[in-house]
Computed example of a mutant assay.
Amino acid sequence: MGVGLIFKIAAVGILVTILSQVLKHSGREEHAFLISLAGLILVLTWILPYIYDLFIMVQDLFQF
């Protein structure tokens, strides 16, 4: 896992937070929720391969 991935996740978090706050203050709570959900799904798609590799390593570690 590179440092670049952590910076991308942080950038998405900051962007989603700003957009959500702007949308909530303009009275569009539904859109703010969808933006937050889209950010979560985006970050999960980036992290999913690393989680899969972790499970494979743990499985190989305990395999006899």
Score class of each variant (00 low, 15 high):
M1H: 01
M1E: 05
M1G: 03
M1R: 07
M1F: 02
M1D: 05
G2L: 01
V3T: 12
G4E: 03
G4P: 00
L5F: 04
L5H: 08
L5Y: 01
I6T: 08
I6W: 09
F7H: 08
F7M: 10
K8W: 01
K8Y: 02
I9V: 13
A10Y: 15
A11K: 10
A11R: 13
A11Y: 07
A11N: 12
V12W: 07
V12M: 06
G13C: 05
G13T: 01
G13S: 02
I14G: 11
L15V: 12
L15N: 06
V16Q: 05
V16W: 02
I18G: 10
I18D: 06
I18E: 08
I18A: 13
I18N: 08
L19S: 14
S20K: 08
S20V: 13
S20N: 13
Q21A: 14
Q21D: 14
Q21L: 09
V22T: 12
V22Y: 12
V22S: 06
L23S: 04
L23M: 10
K24H: 14
K24G: 15
H25M: 07
H25V: 10
H25W: 12
S26H: 13
R28V: 12
R28T: 11
R28Q: 12
R28Y: 15
E29C: 01
E30D: 10
E30S: 12
E30R: 04
H31Q: 09
H31E: 08
H31N: 05
H31A: 10
A32P: 01
A32W: 00
F33S: 14
F33H: 07
F33G: 15
F33C: 09
F33Q: 09
L34Y: 05
L34A: 00
L37R: 04
A38T: 11
A38K: 08
A38H: 02
A38I: 11
A38Q: 02
G39K: 04
L40M: 10
I41L: 07
I41M: 04
L42N: 08
T45Y: 11
W46C: 15
W46L: 15
W46Q: 11
I47E: 13
I47Q: 12
L48M: 13
P49T: 06
Y50A: 05
Y50D: 03
Y50R: 01
Y50N: 05
I51P: 15
I51R: 14
I51N: 11
I51E: 15
Y52N: 14
Y52F: 15
Y52G: 08
D53A: 04
L54T: 07
L54I: 08
L54Q: 10
L54W: 14
F55C: 10
F55A: 06
I56Q: 05
I56V: 14
I56A: 03
I56P: 02
V58R: 06
V58T: 01
V58M: 10
V58P: 00
Q59T: 09
Q59H: 07
D60I: 07
D60V: 07
D60W: 14
L61E: 10
L61D: 03
L61Q: 12
F62N: 02
F62C: 02
F62S: 02
Q63A: 11
F64L: 12
F64D: 15
F64A: 10
